[in-house]
Design a protein around this nucleic acid. Structure first.
Lengths: 196, 196
DNA sequence: CTGACTTATATGGAATTATATATCAACTTG
DNA sequence: CAAGTTGATATATAATTCCATATAAGTCAG
């Protein structure tokens, strides 16, 4: 019964998750109930247009009616924006990459498999979430001896300390408010980097 | 009671009238009742999302959820299309067309697939967005040797230069404000009694 | 004026949504 | 482990939509 509108409600969920907003927070911002939102996102029911408008506004989205023949052009713009996930500094990217490569070879050094998995998952998130300069300092400090870990693996105790630091940074990045988030470029379209 | 969705339902009416379709015909195509459509257009009631989807499809419209930040660019596209399909000079149309045909045969010459895609997408946009006379000069200059590319493909370096020029023109066209837009033909749109 | 066509309204009942309030399982975090 | 979040569900009731069937009212052509 709700298959017609599935693609739209899916977009809502995607947008909410992209902004790392919980259903309850969206509920507070939009005026709808959390339960209501859950049902909409799951396709249990079709929202009224009024509800859609409320939710969209809470997510900073606008509802546009576009002629089908213009969709390629519009998709182009939408895509070029979502592609601007380039918020990470190159330092952060490099460090995460090195840690991931190192981990691929030394995951056995962890106390348990689940601890290793948590570590890997944290790294995966840190690949996508920006860290502040201060946090990067912490990150660097915790992994300062990374270069030598190849030959001389860290002790279990040190490894635990590192894992904790990484998870802490991950949590900070994940739970950062969208408002005081790291500044990002307004328009990806404006970027004219020639050497990309 | 329906103020929130007024702008959307007004768009529906505008689209229907632009296509010179009666409420009855839209009723037949969408599956909704004529009286239902009348109420929606007049704001007597708010349609469900399902009804909106049905009507939109009957009008050849797509419902898009767009980040507010991108609305200027999107409005630009929508406006330039609704203004008239004759905003583009025949020169621009021809040149874009030739480039697209040439590209279909020589996309392999690009450094990477993504670079080639970007080039193609930029062309797709330049098919819909008007360029000023000056920009057309730049465009022409960058592709002056197009006639000979069939027999003698451009070097990778020259190709990169061309791609950059095209992307630059695309960006300029996309982010141009509607107000200082390219001069339009005088009698493009006048038959609209929109009270928005 | 008649006839064809269009949009605006009214009414009433069936179907569905809106909303509040709880509860629950799965996870996270400290 | 204890506390707190998150998302999915379960009710139950109020509010709206949905839709069909008329009907009024306006326009336009012949």
């Amino acid at each position: 019964m709700a298959y017609k509108t599935e693609h739209i409600t899916q977009q809502l969920r995607a947008a909410r998750e992209a902004q790392k907003m919980s259903q309850r927070e969206l509920s507070a911002r939009s005026g709808l109930t959390q339960s209501h939102i859950s049902q909409i996102e799951r396709g249990t029911m079709e929202p009224g247009l009024g509800s859609l408008v409320d939710v969209a506004r809470a997510l900073d989205l606008e509802i546009v009616l576009a002629p089908k023949k213009l969709m390629p052009a519009i998709r182009n713009i939408l895509d070029s924006a979502s592609a601007s996930s380039d918020v990470l500094t190159s330092d952060q990217r490099k460090l995460v990459g090195r840690l991931e490569r190192w981990f691929a070879q030394h995951r056995g050094g962890f106390g348990s498999a689940s601890e290793a998995d948590t570590f890997k998952d944290s790294l995966a998130l840190l690949r996508h979430l920006p860290l502040s300069a201060e946090e990067m300092d912490t990150f660097n400090e915790a992994t300062a001896r990374l270069e030598r870990w190849q030959a001389d693996p860290p002790s279990r105790q040190e490894l635990s300390r590192i894992a904790h630091a990484v998870r802490h940074l991950r949590n900070a990045a994940v739970h950062r408010d969208r408002d005081d988030a790291v500044p990002r470029s307004a328009y990806a379209l404006d970027e004219e980097d020639d050497n990309a």
